[in-house]
Nucleic acid binder design. Structure first.
Lengths: 248, 248
DNA sequence: CTGTCGCATTGACGCAGATCAACTGGATTG
DNA sequence: CAATCCAGTTGATCTGCGTCAATGCGACAG
């Protein structure tokens, strides 16, 4: 997962704007041409597991539309989400044989895949792709470390508020600027998936959602549609430093 | 943090073997020559904070000897360790202006630093360095995700056992092979640092250490010296899949 | 309209780990 | 050889979240 401005997504440079931004924002025409030749699209249904941990991987890919999750499972069934992939995010690891995590479609999903072997060859010939990938991986590492703070030290309420603000930010960042802190969005995750993200049980997630609603921090219409009347108020509940420079 | 075989450390290729492995295991003579010109060493005392979150960073670096930690702190003082840097690990992020975390010396520490500007130039000219860095960053991301499972889903006892096995692996992996599962090592962290690593309090760490000792899983001589008579037994306590292919 | 299926909510209760506090033991200092 | 300090240990108590179980509610089928 990366903290990148969604506005960039509108920068269309071909039939698959997202893919280009993801792997070769700085690529020249020749490099784009080569990528064009090794790509193909795949689509999946919500709930489907595309890749099992340990699977041999012969491609890398980038999310075009929809949301996917990375999860790890212990022998006794305890599960922890370790990645949330939104459009433009990258999946797969050049130089690795097999997948390290289960990848599951949380919503209907379209991926743009690249055959791994030629992709790796392209990478070793041009510094652009490797550099872009490094940048994206560093973004993911930052997100993972923020996530570790959440898992290790935040209360259930703070965890929920943090997750809501993360989703609001990525899902509705444009709207957010335009509306001075009023945002509405649909949760792309079930309560159970939220629990796996946050290291909680689904019951605790449900209770804290109700509590935030009761306290007027969020509004709920149906189970999934969330309305945040005052985004700053939500941020106060996350336990993070005030607004982290997002709105300023 | 990376899961790399410590044996490689003994591969000496110059005055600073670790540095070479860290950033340019595949570099040619010319590239090495350039690295040589932009490097300098710095040493720090145990307990010293080398870098504060938000500091402007004009170098990247690699740990030569000693141990450093990356930590995040919330306004009210809650702290979470998000990185543990052992010899050969890399610090700093090409392309970023400022540090995202506090970096603190857990033991006396020697770092090999590279001035950032010329390092970035070298990176953009040669694919080797960027690729090597990508590989290391992917290793760190894997470690971070393993760590997330630990923080989100493991019990206190499993957390302690996991940390001990991680340290034993990196600190004593050579000995481990030679001695069929019997290892002794010194903890490089205080109980409080262990707690910050594991998302626990120092009291809980202490209690669980005592419990593992009482149950014969580990032996303790003094506060810091740990003896593991049966490494497989320790691994069973971690909650992970049996041995994760380490000894096989 | 009624049954049922999958998510979500809510309540009652228990426990792992946090909190608060007293104590130990080794190292350092005057 | 006290006096102090600091890391660690251990005990008593509290509490936030997990566990187990019942109930609600919209969607969809017959």
């Amino acid at each position: 997962m990366s903290h990148q401005d969604l506005q960039l997504l509108s920068h269309d440079c071909g039939s698959c704007p997202i893919r280009h931004r993801a792997v070769c924002a700085r690529c020249d025409a020749d490099e784009l041409q080569q990528l064009e030749q090794i790509k193909y699209y795949r689509s999946y249904q919500a709930g489907q597991t595309l890749i099992w941990s340990g699977d041999r991987m012969d491609f890398v890919a980038s999310v075009v539309t929809g949301i996917a999750t990375l999860t790890q499972t212990m022998e006794d069934g305890r599960r922890q989400m370790v990645g949330l992939l939104l459009p433009s995010d990258f999946v797969g690891r050049p130089g690795r044989q097999s997948a390290a995590y289960d990848v599951t479609a949380a919503t209907d999903l379209v991926m743009c895949c690249f055959r791994k072997k030629p992709f790796e060859e392209l990478m070793s010939k041009t510094p652009h792709v490797a550099q872009r990938l490094l940048e994206m991986t560093l973004d993911e590492l930052d997100a993972a470390r923020e996530w570790m703070l959440l898992l290790g030290r935040k209360t259930a309420r703070e965890k929920i508020a943090s997750l809501l603000s993360i989703i609001a930010r990525r899902d509705a960042s444009l709207k957010l600027r335009a509306t001075k802190g009023v945002v509405t969005f649909d949760l792309p995750l079930t309560r159970e998936e939220m629990a796996d993200y946050l290291g909680l049980t689904l019951e605790t997630v449900s209770r804290q959602m109700s509590a935030l609603k009761r306290d007027g921090v969020i509004g709920l219409e149906g189970k999934r549609h969330v309305k945040v009347a005052d985004f700053d108020r939500l941020l106060e509940e996350t336990g993070d430093d005030s607004d982290g420079g997002f709105l300023n």
